[in-house]
């Protein structure tokens, strides 16, 4: 888990009523309340970007599970986060296929451009750089995940273009979005 500098003054936002209703619907859909834990965490993650202590409280109430159970699930899965995240979390695959195709060069390049090391967040809270395990895009490596999309066949030039766009607040069309429209 990377160390993230707080980006929001509010460290403990309350999930909205809409999210609470979403969790109720999940509990009704799943065979028992506890089995709705992962999708309920996702519902909070999708709104807040992380699961706040207030979010944990909501989960224990709605799903009839202990705080310990929520915490163990939150900490077991790498995509679940308990702290506010950077605006753009750049997750570069550093597993074998992407490594063969040059992931380390890409990571070194990103470190230089962002002025941070792998696992760190820029002081302005805008970018975090993470190394992640296989993203399932091995034939399209090296690749990088941002939100729910992947950028594939990356080169240092393409990474520079991506960073420039993100600095302007524009998220460029990802390769997996293209795949959907292809």
């Amino acid at each position: 888990m990377p160390m993230n500098k707080p980006v929001s003054a509010d460290q403990n936002p309350q999930p909205s009523a809409a999210v609470a209703a979403q969790i109720d619907a999940l509990v009704a859909r799943y065979p028992n309340p506890a089995s709705a834990l992962m999708p309920s965490i996702w519902a909070i993650m999708d709104e807040l970007g992380f699961v706040s202590p207030a979010g944990v409280d909501l989960l224990t109430q709605k799903l009839e599970v202990t705080r310990a159970r929520v915490q163990e699930v939150l900490t077991f899965y790498t995509m679940f986060r308990s702290e506010p995240q950077a605006q753009y979390v750049l997750q570069v695959c550093h597993n074998i296929s992407c490594h063969i195709m040059g992931a380390r060069t890409l990571i070194a390049h990103l470190e230089k451009r962002l002025g941070i090391r792998l696992g760190e967040t820029t002081p302005d809270g805008k970018f975090a750089l993470e190394g992640v395990e296989c993203l399932g895009a091995c034939g399209m490596g090296p690749c990088l995940q941002l939100g729910k999309h992947l950028y594939e066949h990356l080169t240092c030039d393409r990474v520079d273009e991506l960073l420039e766009s993100l600095r302007r607040g524009e998220v460029p069309r990802a390769d997996t979005e293209r795949e959907l429209e292809a």
């Binding site: 506890a34 992962m38 996702w42 163990e72 699930v73 899965y77 790498t78 995509m79």
Partner: peptide
């Protein structure tokens, strides 16, 4: 039900996957 995992290689193992949907590690 389409169930979304959350980043754990071990959940590809069938009993790990089942435990995961039960709302556990």
């Amino acid at each position: 039900i389409v169930h979304k995992g959350a980043g754990a290689y071990i959940c590809g193992e069938e009993t790990g996957l089942i435990n995961s949907v039960e709302g556990r590690k």
